[in-house]
């Protein structure tokens, strides 16, 4: 009985996600032979989603405390645009550009966190305004997209890390090494750090406590406002890192950078078993959420539905499915 109850919230949702991910991936290998078998296919999913993984970690943190932040995509656009202008037109160096990215992210996180935590304003409204502000500011900086021509940056951008033992032989019979980009290392590092933070630190446990029940968290002596503020600040920091990783992947400053990322990040977190109501969530689940989401998008596009609109529709369908599962799990929990 006790075991069953333990399985009924966090772990059950996590389990569903992991099972669905493996089922989809194995299904893809079996039915769509188009390259899913090669390890590089999997690594490519990581390569192209490094930024999303980082962003989704930040989103999960905020969602665990019971908030939400939909301004992340806009922040990424602003960050990549500012860094692009700095590197391209001012010929700045890379370390300063990274600092710029982190500063912008943390400024957004700090302001949103302050408004949400200390002034008790609905996080959705605040971050909606944040999103429009970031998008508007991006167009004020530059409207037309442009590529960055900065030697050091291009070098960093094209750095590839060879993964030994996972290469494959291509059609011409030449052995091709499997590789990942720097962003993936950053993303995995973030996942590990966030996992440790949530699992074993006082702050991480406070996030869960605040999201689960504000009143009892307060009675436990947790500074609820400060905890919420820190969650948003941390999320902003991660948005800064994620924005820079996205900038490294795209290599350009564009208004369209990071469009729809907030939705993907929320969808990934939800698919990964983070509850919207707060208090429940897991970074590992979030990682699998991102992987599931992008796997299903890959499957849909390689199954012949390659028009642009299918991606939006699949993402929404997936989000809808998991929201309904969550809702059912929650109502079951309530009734039991």
């Amino acid at each position: 009985m006790k075991n069953k109850k333990k399985l009924s919230d966090s772990n059950l949702l996590l389990l569903i996600t992991i099972v669905i991910f493996f089922a989809m991936y194995i299904g893809a290998i079996l039915f769509l032979k188009g390259g899913f078998l090669r390890p590089q296919a999997f690594l490519n999913i990581l390569n192209s989603n490094a930024a999303l993984i980082i962003l989704a970690c930040g989103m999960s943190l905020v969602m665990i405390t019971g908030g939400i932040d939909i301004s992340l995509g806009g922040q990424m656009a602003l960050i990549s645009m500012c860094c692009a202008v700095y590197l391209d037109e001012m010929g700045g160096n890379i370390f300063v550009s990274i600092l710029i990215a982190l500063a912008i992210g943390m400024a957004f996180g700090g302001v949103i966190g302050f408004l949400v935590a200390y002034l008790d304003i609905q996080p959705f409204i605040v971050s909606l305004a944040g999103m429009f502000f970031a998008r508007g500011m991006t167009t004020i900086v530059r409207t037309a997209p442009f590529n960055v021509a900065n030697e050091a940056f291009t070098k960093l951008k094209n750095t590839r890390i060879i993964v030994p033992g996972l290469g494959s032989v291509n059609r011409k019979g030449i052995y091709v090494d499997a590789y990942i980009e720097i962003g993936v290392i950053v993303a995995l590092l973030v996942v590990v750090l966030m996992f440790i933070l949530l699992k074993w630190t006082k702050l991480g446990r406070a996030f869960y406590a605040v999201g689960g029940n504000k009143q009892s968290a307060l009675m436990l002596g947790i500074n609820v406002k400060r905890t919420k503020f820190l969650a948003h600040l941390l999320c902003g920091l991660l948005a800064g890192i994620g924005g820079y990783v996205l900038f490294m992947i795209r290599g350009s400053g564009s208004v369209a950078n990071g469009s729809g990322f907030e939705m993907d990040a929320i969808a990934s977190s939800i698919i990964g078993g983070t509850l919207l109501t707060g208090g429940v969530g897991n970074i590992i689940g979030t990682l699998f959420g991102v992987l599931s989401l992008s796997t299903i998008q890959n499957i849909v596009s390689s199954a012949g539905f390659d028009e642009a609109w299918w991606i939006g529709i699949t993402t929404a369908g997936m989000l809808c499915l998991f929201l309904v599962i969550q809702s059912i799990v929650m109502s079951r929990k309530k009734s039991s």
Binding site: L115, D120, I121
Partner: peptide
């Protein structure tokens, strides 16, 4: 294109002014 940025400021001012605290 830049309109949302200005409106966002208005929204923030509005919600801050109407926040109960």
């Amino acid at each position: 294109d830049a309109l949302p940025a200005y409106k966002a400021v208005v929204v923030i001012v509005l919600v801050v002014a109407s926040a109960p605290t």
